[in-house]
């Protein structure tokens, strides 16, 4: 699948934003946040800014951004629509929280709003994951692990961000949380790679063309001698060797480096080290998301020379 940069940015940035939102709200409810006038608001603003930037960038990918509002209408069947609804719905409690915190008010509603925000954020990320996870046409996406990983990566990236922020106050628990979240995400991602490697949905070119399973098939001429929309969009594929290298980079940047940096940060220089961790994580996320697309094989490519999908 063609990795569209706007989509990569959208899913990674909004994932981190929603992750941060979740941890922020949970910490608030648990009363774990240091008492600082601007901390909750500032963090919330950052979380919403990331989420919003992501959402906005996803509309760049649309042919008609001005009609984007229409995407809210089909929540009964479409995960993309649900994602939009959930994202917008999350703005309500999160926005109220923001107002409360902006004006430094205290309200009994805060825990409720926090929990609602958490629910909204989790739902939004889940929907994002399900947009991909529900596509039966792409075996590498059509995995139960996919939405879970979307959640786990959102949680991990949110946690690392929170760890960086709270490191200013010298808090250690967020770093530990980040370690746990990263570890969990790493485990899931490894499980995912293991799951998709060498497996396919079992669709074959013979099925696509209605031939007996032992028929041999090769493309003589594609419909057009230059790539068409389908080949560009669905036919994008990264070579196996590249994929392996990129996986290493992704795992190193996304998990390896941040894990080490966070552990070291427990012993000092936390803000600086965690800043590095965030940067590495961002790079890793982008590579991971790029690979998520580039390793995905669409079943329609059976008509364009692929023998299995």
């Amino acid at each position: 699948m063609n990795p569209a940069y706007s989509v990569i940015f959208f899913t990674t940035a909004s994932g981190a934003g929603y992750g941060l939102l979740v941890w922020l709200c949970l910490a608030e409810v648990a009363g774990l946040l240091p008492d600082h006038r601007w901390l909750p608001f500032g963090t919330l603003a950052l979380a919403l800014a990331l989420a919003t930037a992501g959402l906005l960038s996803s509309t760049f990918h649309l042919g008609h951004p001005e009609r984007a509002w229409r995407a809210l209408s089909q929540w009964r069947s479409s995960w993309l629509s649900r994602e939009g609804v959930a994202a917008l719905a999350t703005y309500v409690p999160a926005g109220l929280l923001g107002l409360i915190w902006l004006f430094g008010l205290s309200s009994p509603l805060v825990p409720v709003l926090c929990l609602l925000s958490v629910a909204g954020a989790v739902a939004t990320v889940w929907c994002t994951g399900m947009i991909y996870g529900s596509l039966r046409t792409i075996h590498q996406w059509n995995q139960p692990l996919v939405p879970v990983i979307y959640l786990a990566l959102a949680a991990a990236s949110g946690a690392v961000l929170l760890a960086l922020i709270l490191s200013v106050w010298g808090l250690v628990w967020p770093a530990l949380l980040a370690l746990v979240a990263l570890g969990a995400a790493l485990a899931l991602k490894l499980a995912y790679f293991a799951r998709i490697d060498g497996s396919s949905a079992g669709y074959t070119v013979q099925m696509a063309l209605g031939l007996s399973p032992d028929a041999r098939v090769r493309v003589l001429d594609p419909p057009h001698s230059r790539p068409n929309f389908v080949m560009r969009e669905m036919g994008y594929q990264v070579g196996r060797r590249h994929a392996t290298r990129l996986r290493r980079i992704a795992l190193g940047a996304l998990f390896g480096a941040p894990l080490v940096l966070i552990v070291v940060s427990l012993f000092g220089f936390a803000p600086a080290l965690l800043t590095l961790a965030v940067l590495s994580l961002a790079l890793g996320l982008i590579v991971e998301r790029w690979l998520f697309f580039a390793e995905a094989r669409h079943v329609s490519m059976l008509y364009y020379g692929q023998s299995e999908a």
């Binding site: 001429d221 419909p223 057009h224 001698s225 230059r226 068409n228």
Partner: peptide, 12 residues
């Protein structure tokens, strides 16, 4: 080959 549609089918 001057035909914008046909040459998409075979340009080389």
């Amino acid at each position: 080959s001057q035909n914008a549609w046909l040459r998409q089918i075979t340009a080389a």
